[in-house]
Amino acid sequence: MRSQSEPAAAEPGAIARPPLVREFLLVAGLFLVYKFGRQLATGHTAEALHNAHRIWDLERTLHLPSEVDVQSALLHGDTLVHLANTYYATVHFPATLAFLVWLYLKRPAHYVWARRVLALVTAAALVLPFTFPLAPPRMLAASGLIDTARVYGPSVYGPPSSDHLSNQFAAMPSLHFGWALMVAIGMIAATRSRWRWLWLLHPAITLLVIVGTANHYWVDAIIATAMLGSALALIRPQTSSGGTPTSLRSPHRTATTAVRGTRRLVAEEPALVGAGR
């Protein structure tokens, strides 16, 4: 019989929580790469604006919903558009960081899987600004959209010519949306509550915000979804020695369902916004 002073044996097949210091450095590195990596691809203003016209024309050819309809709904009141700008400026990083911290503390196996997926998506997203620089729709006069953050505040960007903290010509893909979708997928996979599908509200609101504030095109979110789907297909959950996923509740099935729902969301969200006007 084990005495009360003896530590309890580890659960068979359980995945140990990774070392805290190492994970802190890895996650901090991920955020720094995201924040500063795309600055290396600056200096392509003319090409970025040319690509913006191409994307705008492509969306019209594909009969995608107009970003103008979403922005028009936000502009019905100063409070609503201000909230959208605030969500864009303040939720992206803290929500993703809180997601990783919670998984690290409560679901170590999910944490390792989610961190690897986010790292791969972020690394892949850094390639596109070099190969396809893209100005956001707020800079495209032909779109008829306004820069809501500049007009109503708060804004996280300065004039492109003097903004040394970000590359504003790296609109594709939208990591705002890609990370938000991964947060939802991870939380749905990691929890049992019947309300867990409400986590999809985070990427849904993020999609509405990034389009309505003229920071991204629909295509930016579609490309981010495709990249996330590819990362989820490549990175498998950690397994126990018997090969059965440990503490993971069908994350790939969750991911597939969420990605399919996102595709419908891109097509249907403007209609839903219009119905509420």
Score class of each variant (00 low, 15 high):
V70K: 11
V70I: 15
V70G: 09
V70L: 12
Q71V: 02
A73D: 08
L74Q: 09
L74Y: 08
G77S: 14
G77Y: 07
G77N: 13
T79Q: 10
T79H: 10
T79M: 10
V81I: 14
H82Y: 08
L83F: 04
L83D: 01
A84H: 03
A84T: 01
Y88R: 08
Y88H: 12
A89Y: 14
T90A: 15
V91C: 06
V91N: 03
V91T: 12
V91F: 12
V91L: 14
V91S: 13
H92L: 11
H92I: 11
F93Q: 12
F93W: 15
F93I: 15
F93K: 12
T96A: 08
L97E: 04
A98G: 13
A98F: 13
A98I: 13
L100I: 05
L100G: 02
L100C: 05
V101Q: 00
V101M: 03
V101S: 00
W102H: 00
W102N: 00
L103C: 03
Y104C: 00
K106T: 03
K106R: 14
R107I: 02
A109Y: 07
H110C: 11
H110P: 04
R115Y: 01
R116C: 01
V117C: 12
L118M: 08
L118G: 01
A119F: 03
L120E: 04
V121S: 01
A124G: 03
A125S: 15
V127M: 08
L128T: 15
L128N: 11
P129W: 10
F130W: 15
T131E: 07
T131V: 15
F132Q: 09
P133K: 04
L134F: 04
A135R: 01
P136V: 06
P136C: 05
P137E: 00
R138T: 02
A142G: 03
L145H: 01
D147V: 05
D147C: 02
T148L: 07
A149T: 08
R150I: 06
R150M: 11
Y152F: 14
Y152K: 06
G153A: 13
P154C: 02
P154D: 01
P154M: 03
P154K: 04
S155H: 11
S155F: 08
V156A: 13
Y157S: 14
G158K: 14
G158N: 11
G158D: 15
P159H: 15
P160C: 13
P160T: 14
S161F: 13
S161D: 15
S162A: 15
S162N: 13
H164Y: 10
H164Q: 11
H164N: 10
L165I: 07
L165Y: 12
Q168N: 12
M172L: 15
P173V: 11
P173S: 10
P173G: 05
P173F: 10
P173I: 09
S174Y: 10
S174G: 07
L175V: 06
H176A: 07
H176K: 04
G178S: 09
W179I: 02
A180E: 07
L181D: 05
L181S: 05
M182Y: 02
M182D: 02
M182A: 10
A184G: 07
A184M: 06
A184Q: 06
I185M: 01
I185H: 01
G186F: 06
M187R: 12
M187I: 14
A189G: 15
A189Y: 09
A189C: 09
A190M: 06
T191H: 08
T191Q: 09
